[in-house]
Design a protein around this nucleic acid. Structure first.
Length: 435
RNA sequence: GGAGGGAUGACAGAGCGGCCGAAUGUACCGGUCUUGAAAACCGGCGUGGGCUUGCCCACCGUGGGUUCAAAUCCCACUCCCUCCGCCA
């Protein structure tokens, strides 16, 4: 949620910034009008309330003084005022709810550095990385044996079985098996261990309450994109960002503890409503995937460094796995609602010949913290909202696909990245399948 | 799933329906004293909102209700603790 006080103070600046991501100034004017109305009603209601309280006190005093006649008179007067107060409060709450609903629809103010643009076509490619680049080697070309889609490799080596997944849970629920399952496990363990030096590992619940989803902004906006367990009022988390953002919900953190850096690997559940049929083969887009998330609560001053650290770690994993990737600076039109600035990482997967998004590193400013009410106490004793930053390092389904396709050998086997060997009992290859 | 107990400020812990936003203790901050520290003493010390910046309003697990007036009474829910049952 954006800062209403800022909107009051500098309406033109806020409108100009939001116009960069397509929010009309009429929308903001409507919110400003609602705010004015709300505050007017609030004053009226609070004034009446103060009178009722005052009269009630007099009733008490009159009763103690045995002046029952005065007491009865005041009681009646207060009762009438109380009715008025109830109506005024009702009106205040109604307008307040309207104002809040409108405000929740407003996306975050984009960072100045975020490039202008309407949609993903306007994202700015910042750089690419590939194995050997630092030694002056050219962008790799890929041989025929690497031009095989992971779903075919998966079937050939018996390591990915989309059909069984579909049988169990419907399409787009992958089932990894054998060395494929082990590879997935190794990727997660490798990443979590790598982040251990600075990030506390968390294993949160995979479900969250409606209230929790609200505080992260996933509800009500993205209700259709999430799986719900209605009977228990729970939602399957679409990312570990949900539990991590809510861990300190409603708390005032000690400034000395910041930045608080957390990492978690969880399953991520996404209904992908509306995406049916598009880019859905194999692991390109699935309803459930594992992801290691990096997250930090920090002061505004620490935010930039924290964001950079997460990006660096995500890139570090891709480099360690020997994968080619590119770095995209998301334009204002493609930013997620809550984000002020986002850098995406896309890995190149030669078998399907496409760049696949495997990480999204975002800086939310105080947008998430305002809704989740996470603050910190500053040196002078005052409180301020924290900044939150997060990023994936990494989303494993697509990474798994890129690893398998990139490292496929002429004989059909997969050469495993060196860094994963400790997690695979020293194993160096998968397949070829013994016939 | 069953029975009982509980939820109040950073923590501990009081609170007859009526100057209770809340006693007291600890912690914390400032001061006096001291060479310094400790102790002692004095003062301060929740969060958010509104405006006419001094006042007003809200908040005692959550949501309803009763009342002129609710931390206090009633109802529902959530969570925690103890015991029983069940269980990977």
């Amino acid at each position: 949620m954006i800062d209403l006080a800022l909107l009051r103070r500098e309406p033109d600046a806020v409108k100009a910034a939001l116009a960069r991501r397509g929010v009309s100034s009429a929308t903001m004017d409507a919110i400003i009008a609602l705010d004015v109305e709300h505050r007017g009603l609030l004053q009226e209601a609070e004034g009446l309330r103060a009178e009722v309280k005052f009269l009630s006190r007099l009733v008490g005093e009159a009763r103690r003084g045995k002046d029952l006649e005065t007491a009865a008179l005041l009681t009646e007067k207060s009762r009438v005022l109380g009715d008025e107060e109830r109506q005024a409060t009702e009106a205040t709450e109604r307008v307040g709810a309207l104002l809040r609903d409108e405000l929740l629809q407003v996306p975050n103010i984009p960072a100045d550095e975020a490039p202008d643009g309407d949609d993903e076509k306007d994202n700015v490619e910042v750089r690419r990385w590939w194995v050997g680049m630092d030694d002056g080697l050219a962008l790799p070309t890929y041989a025929e044996h690497q031009r095989v889609a992971h779903w075919d490799i998966g079937t050939e080596l018996g390591i990915l079985d989309m059909e069984s997944g579909a049988k169990l849970a419907g399409s787009m629920f992958p089932l990894y098996r054998g060395d494929g399952a082990r590879l997935l496990r190794a990727l997660g363990s490798f990443a979590l261990d790598r982040h251990r030096d600075a990030y506390e590992e968390i294993r949160p619940p995979s479900f969250a309450l409606t209230e929790t989803m609200m505080s992260t902004g996933h509800l009500p906006k993205s209700a259709d994109d999430m799986y719900a367990i209605e009977r228990d009022g729970l939602w399957a988390i679409p990312t570990a960002e949900v539990p991590l953002t809510s861990m300190h919900r409603g708390e005032i953190l000690d400034e000395a503890r910041l930045p608080i850096r957390l990492t978690a690997q969880t399953a991520c559940f996404r209904r992908e409503a509306g995406a049916a049929g598009r880019d859905t083969r194999g692991l390109l887009r699935v309803h459930e995937f594992d992801k290691v998330e990096l997250f930090a609560y920090c002061t505004p001053e620490q935010a930039e460094a924290a964001h950079g650290d997460i990006l660096g770690r995500a890139e570090g994993i891709l480099q360690a796995l020997g994968l080619t990737y590119r770095v995209l600076d998301l334009c204002t039109g493609d930013l997620g609602t809550s984000s002020a600035r986002t850098i995406d990482l896309e890995v190149f997967s030669p078998g399907v010949d496409r760049w696949l998004e495997v990480s999204s590193v975002s800086w939310f400013r105080d947008f998430q913290a305002r809704r989740a009410n996470v603050r910190y106490r500053q040196g002078d004793g005052s409180t301020a909202l924290v900044h939150t930053v997060n990023g994936s390092a990494l989303a494993w389904a697509r990474t798994w696909a890129a690893v398998v396709e990139t490292h496929r050998q002429p004989d059909g086997s997969i050469r495993l990245p060196d860094v994963l060997r400790p997690y695979l009992g020293g194993q160096t290859t998968i397949g070829p399948k013994a016939s």
